[in-house]
Simulated scan of single mutants.
Amino acid sequence: MKTLIGTEYLGGFFLLRPGNARGLRVAKEQFDELWQSALVPRWLSESAREAWGLDITGQPMNAAVLLRPLSPYGYGRASYELNLGCNYDCEHCYLGLKRFEGLDWPDRQRLLDMMRDAGVVWLQLTGGEPLVDRFFAQVYAYAYDLGMQLTISSNGSRLWRDDVLELLTSRPVYKLTVSVYGATAEGYDAVTRRPGSFHKFAKGLSAAVAARLPMNLNLVVTKSNAHELDAMKALADGYGLTYHVYSNISPTIYGGPEVLRSQDPAYLRRRTPFTGCNAGHTFFHVDPFGRASICKVGRDPSVPLLEEGVEGLRRLGGIADRLLGRQGGCTGCTLQGTCGTCMPLVQLYRTAKADLRTYCQHGT
């Protein structure tokens, strides 16, 4: 494992410390010099000492720095959904049917190589619950060794395991986002519909804090646990962790309305105006079967990467432009400039025949 990563990111050139939030921007001339140097240049050793307290003076370049090849595709970020399966059965889950299906290791390895070739520097591993996936450790280690900064979205139920903690500390995770479904066993287990899940979560959270993993929390609010929101905030504050309150429940990825019943209308959050995003242009999502889409919400149409290869990603920009444009029932709306819901999400709400007020702040 290398000490530093040298990479291009969205037209700039950077030196990164795996698992560290701090990075250094360098000139193209300096980046080119690294490719030609047998030993770490003086300017790099001085910069590494100042930025990270590292002493790499005189070290061979190929031992100290992983230099990632330039990519012609322009993607800096991606999310990879390892599996739709989960060890919980949450009432609000947007995945709907939580099936343990996915690719074997050789095809996953091919996908990760394609993500590297596409220029992906920041990769989110998600699910389902990614830590219960049978290839989680292999995916994580391989992506890390390709020079990616890894974030994980998890329910935290397996963070207490020694093998997981060793993996996330020996190959430092960039960020860990843990969902919180309650502050007591009664409230938490009512949401997950898995008796004993709060105990595993609490044990995992405590272990992750003790291991000093970089972590933030998503406090998920439903009808079942809304009365515990203040206690959930206190839990986060007690550990000194930042948090985000997540209260707007979305339909399933298939447009299923059943999960919307779990939403507490009293906690509907007004969305900020949606003015566009980089989905499909500098970011993409990959599902458990190797299908690339512009994001987790706008899944159709998608690109079968195992068939088309990394070149297939060139189609995503056009797909994004078509999906993100206002259309259908929103065409002609004079309030589009203040709409807070992106069009792919609007389409899911429409498929679910949801109350207009749940996704349109202008609805009556």
Rank of each mutant, 00 (worst) to 15 (best):
T3D: 08
Y9F: 15
L10I: 10
G19Y: 03
N20T: 04
A21C: 10
A21Y: 12
L24P: 06
V26S: 05
A27P: 01
L34I: 12
S37Y: 00
A38R: 12
L54M: 11
I56S: 08
T57V: 05
A63L: 14
L70C: 05
G74E: 12
G76E: 07
C86R: 00
R99H: 11
G102K: 00
P106F: 08
L112F: 01
D113P: 01
V121R: 14
Q124V: 13
E129M: 03
Y140T: 11
G156V: 01
L165D: 05
Y174Q: 05
K175F: 13
S179P: 13
G182E: 03
T184R: 10
T192A: 09
R193Y: 07
A202M: 10
G204P: 08
L205R: 06
A234V: 09
Y246Q: 12
I249M: 04
S250L: 08
I253F: 15
Q263N: 09
P265W: 07
L268H: 13
P273F: 13
F274T: 04
N278Q: 14
H281C: 10
P288E: 04
A292G: 02
S302T: 06
E307V: 08
I319C: 06
D321P: 03
D321Y: 12
G332R: 05
T338Q: 14
L348F: 05
K353Y: 08
K353W: 07
L356G: 14
